[in-house]
Simulated assay, not measured.
Amino acid sequence: MAEESSTLSQVFQKAESLYLGLQQSALPSNSDGYQATVNDSIRGFLRAVDMVRQLCLFSENEFVEDIGAKDLRFLLTEYYLGELFLKRTGDDRLSYLDQSKLHFDHFLHQCESHDILTPQDKKHLEQVTTDAPRDAATRRADKIARFKREKDMQSRIEEFNKILGTTSSSYDGELSTEMEEKYRDFVQLHIQYAIFQTMEQLVGIQQELPMLKKMVERKNASGSTDGRAAGRSQEDMQEARVDDSRIYNATGPLMDAQGKLLRPFVITNQRRELMQGVFRPGHSLPTMTIDEYLQQEVERGNVLSGGTDPKKPEVDDNDEEAVDAETLKARAWDDFKDENPKGWGNRGGRHG
């Protein structure tokens, strides 16, 4: 009876407290205690959704400025439900994803109706829903920008939490004019962060849903096959099974008088290949000659031809300048050899 007489604010605050407790919980996500809290929080938010509809709290033609500061937080109800259905575990994962996506879509629709979605969010939402092709540099820049934006929102929420003395979006105390403006900014920041997280979760759901659907199709197909196999009588299965005691009797008969298989066998028409495999040498035979290998390396450009030293250009005897230059070069080289005897640079060649 106490729960039935609770106000919308009390129902929402209790469900939100359960949700925030899950964020800090050390229990495994598949444990009974964790899943019980998930279900309790879901029931609370579903009741909050019904109460919001009964009270006609939001109108499609209202802008965010027309909604009261304390009523704004109830827009987060659909977002919390989307997050909670993702936390459910069990065999019906596909159904949980569908329900989560439904609540996320409803939350974004509400935000768009009340003019809360920013142009940046609308652009990203279009890219997410249409899977528009983008180059790697653009994707990386968007990812870095969104990461910085997420960190900025988290730090601002923590600052508001210190100012308002709360860890959730709820605040039931009296609000002065100045405090009401701060609280409105605080709730709007919560909603912006929820929009950010919703679009990130939708990307994951969009990637996971096709895989789960394929798994369900394969499971159904294998289930029908198993059902046909189970329909066969035990006697038929026994007759089809090869006798284990005779399975290694390779020299005995292949079948008995009733046509029952006595040992495994291989049907093949590759008799010549089997014979060649039996009488082949123990080592691997070459697949090409040395000449073929060298020709292949030449075609690949791995073999140098014509030596490694480039030919010295011959000097034209009629070109006096070239002849003089060559003569001066030869004299300089002779002078260098006279001034630097062979072995002079070696440590062992130094005496005295």
Rank of each mutant, 00 (worst) to 15 (best):
R271L: 03
R246H: 12
V315D: 05
S245P: 04
V323W: 03
R300I: 04
P313V: 12
Q295F: 05
G282Y: 10
T327H: 15
L285W: 13
E299Q: 14
V298R: 15
S233Q: 06
Q258A: 15
I290D: 03
E299M: 12
R272Q: 04
A229F: 15
N269H: 01
T225G: 06
G306D: 00
V242Y: 04
G252E: 02
Y293C: 10
Q296T: 04
V315N: 05
R246E: 09
D256Q: 02
F279S: 12
V303D: 00
R280T: 07
Q238H: 04
P264W: 01
L294H: 05
S305D: 02
L285Q: 14
G227D: 11
M255L: 12
G223A: 10
E321S: 11
N318H: 14
Q258T: 13
P253M: 08
K219H: 03
S284M: 15
P281T: 07
D317C: 08
T289V: 01
I267G: 00
T287C: 10
A240F: 09
E235C: 11
Q296F: 08
G282S: 15
Y248T: 15
P313E: 13
R271D: 00
G282I: 12
S233N: 08
D243P: 01
L261H: 02
K312F: 11
E297D: 05
F279W: 11
R218E: 10
A240S: 11
A257Q: 14
R246K: 15
R241M: 14
D226A: 12
V242P: 00
L304S: 05
E320Y: 11
G259R: 01
L294M: 10
K219L: 04
R280W: 02
E235G: 07
V323C: 09
A322L: 08
L262W: 00
R241W: 11
G259Q: 02
R232D: 09
D319R: 06
P286W: 03
R280G: 05
S284Q: 15
D244F: 09
D243I: 04
D291P: 00
A240D: 09
E235M: 11
T327R: 15
V298Y: 11
F279Y: 09
S245Y: 02
P310A: 06
G301I: 01
E326W: 08
E320L: 13
D309Y: 13
